[in-house]
Design a protein around this nucleic acid. Structure first.
Lengths: 109, 109
DNA sequence: TCATCGATGAAGTCATGACTTCACTATCAG
DNA sequence: CTGATAGTGAAGTCATGACTTCATCGATGA
């Protein structure tokens, strides 16, 4: 699967405040779907939809035991995210370095 | 201003592929608005709108000299982003640690 | 000075996406 | 079996947001 799409899903998933609230909650520990819905004051259906998005982005992993689905944080998505930021930071900082070489050619710090 | 809103703007800004393309481009070095528009095959107006979003999220800084507006990466937004991820990672990893004390098992990626 | 170029503002279109409700399935307790 | 519980699927509503076009403005160079 294209890495572009992957990153897309990641940022799109975290772009929604409700979904970030779910992530916040799951950072504290696993929860059921209805357990997530309660403090958010939205329907269980809505939460389930958000969970699909979060799972597709690999930010959350869920498994169903009996009739209850347990949701927990999935580190992969976050790792991917960190890498994206690190890559970009590296890119523009490298450029600033080269620029520094030219502008401050009589000895810099 | 609430930090929630700030993070919101950040993820929402990067949730759009076109805006990420702009960030990609600017990581390589500064550019004018029309310089950004050309490879994206959208109107200059559209790019200007995206730039407003990116500036509000502190991911990009722009300044106008004469009739040309020069756009460059702004590190603050990215720093904010990194901190958000680090905070969350810390939170759930701390929890896994406590759990690990009890269960003593597994390692992850 | 005048034509052009880079950018901006206003307003409209169109798709997407965050919800809801309602109907339904599957599990568990009595 | 019966009834409550946990979640899923389908379909509809409503707002937001990513574009466009058109008109305009200020800087610039011939």
């Amino acid at each position: 699967m294209s890495p572009r799409i992957e990153i897309d899903r990641l940022f799109q998933a975290l772009g929604d405040p409700t979904r970030r609230a779910i992530v916040d909650r799951l950072s504290l520990g696993p929860s059921s779907v209805s357990g997530l819905a309660a403090p958010l004051e939205i329907t269980v259906t809505a939460v389930a939809q958000h969970l699909q998005v979060l799972e597709a982005a690999r930010l959350v992993r869920t498994e169903k035991a009996g009739r209850v689905r347990t949701c927990r944080i999935a580190p992969e998505g976050f790792a991917r995210l960190e890498r994206w930021i690190a890559d970009h930071r590296a890119q523009w900082e490298r450029r600033l370095d080269r620029l520094g070489d030219v502008l401050a050619e009589d000895g810099d710090d």
